[in-house]
């Protein structure tokens, strides 16, 4: 007891130093978003003068100007881009989580020839990035007439090795084979057992992985910007962000910030509610660039 009291006194300076650094880092994390929000409410000419810390009244004018401008050009409109992103991201997330769970379940509950090979294979391909085979993906899209549709952005999610890996890790402790066997005695079919007994048992892991699958798909720029290059009205949210920058010689910063503000708000709000789960998921190593 005594020693800790002494220790506390001696190190209080150290502690203050650590708090100061942590608070400065938090300011660094938040500051660009603060400027984003403030600038979205200011007139372009005011923004150009430097940093401002108080909001103005220009947000709706900036927003109206942005909408008018995207309507006049051929690029995708803001709300259309958000809708397109949802159309891609929601089925991507559902397919990715469902099929990763199914695959992990197949490798956990059953014994069959080639099982170890299949697991080793999934482990080995985790590190292969999709960017290196983009030329071949374009070819697949041409062969299957999927080029310029949302399908090649959605369907590949059914084979997500990293998600399978984390689902399997979870199942090794979170899923008891005895329950599966008990259900068999009751006469349930294997597929039904997975859906009605397996899935409820692994729901927490599915929820965590769903958040990361959703975020990865929602934020993806590279693949859609190549596979949807010819389809202006199918542009996703990150592609809209890209168009904010390009094709404007007379840049209106108020409009750019207003556009950025609207693309960033859904994520910030979702993060406000889910941050606890997200941070816990990151701690599990559940996220990979």
């Amino acid at each position: 007891m005594e020693t800790t009291a002494v220790g506390k006194k001696k190190t209080s300076g150290k502690k203050i130093f650590r708090y100061v650094i942590c608070i400065l880092l938090c300011i660094l994390s938040l500051f660009p978003f603060y400027v984003l929000i403030i600038n979205s409410t200011l007139e372009s000419n005011v923004i150009k003068q430097g940093l401002h810390f108080l909001p103005g009244k220009y947000f709706f004018r900036n927003y109206a100007g942005l909408i008018a401008k995207t309507n006049a050009t051929s690029s995708v409109s803001l709300w259309r881009a958000l809708l397109n992103s949802l159309i891609v991201t929601v089925p991507t997330t559902l397919l990715q989580i469902y099929f990763a769970s199914l695959t992990a379940y197949g490798l956990t509950v059953y014994n069959f020839k080639g099982k170890n090979f299949a697991w080793g294979f999934i482990y080995a391909i985790m590190m292969i990035p999709t960017q290196v085979s983009i030329v071949g993906l374009i070819k697949v899209c041409e062969l299957t007439h999927m080029y310029g549709t949302f399908l090649p952005l959605i369907l590949p999610a059914m084979a997500a090795p990293t998600t399978v890996y984390f689902m399997k890790q979870y199942m090794q402790t979170g899923l008891s084979v005895e329950i599966v066997e008990a259900a068999r005695i009751d006469g349930a079919g294997e597929f039904r057992i997975f859906n009605t007994i397996g899935i409820p048992l692994i729901k927490p892991a599915m929820a965590t992985q769903a958040i990361f699958a959703f975020v990865a798909s929602w934020n993806n720029l590279y693949t859609p910007s190549i596979l949807l290059a010819t389809e202006q009205d199918k542009g996703t949210m990150p592609m809209f962000v890209e168009s904010l920058k390009s094709n404007d010689k007379k840049r209106d910063f108020g409009q750019i910030y207003a556009g950025l503000f609207i693309t960033v708000i859904p994520i910030l709000v979702a993060y406000l509610f889910l941050s606890k789960y997200i941070v816990a998921g990151v701690a599990l190593g559940g996220v990979k660039e």
């Binding site: 990763a100 059953y110 069959f112 080639g114 085979s133 071949g136 697949v140 399978v164």
Partner: peptide, 29 residues
């Protein structure tokens, strides 16, 4: 062994999709 075939069935979609959208594109590249 009897149940083992379900294991193969359950992991099949992953490998089919992998072959079409990742393995073939890599070979083609």
């Amino acid at each position: 062994v009897e149940y083992g075939k379900y294991g193969v069935l359950f992991i099949a979609p992953f490998f089919i999709v992998f072959l079409i959208f990742q393995f073939y594109p890599l070979l083609y590249t």
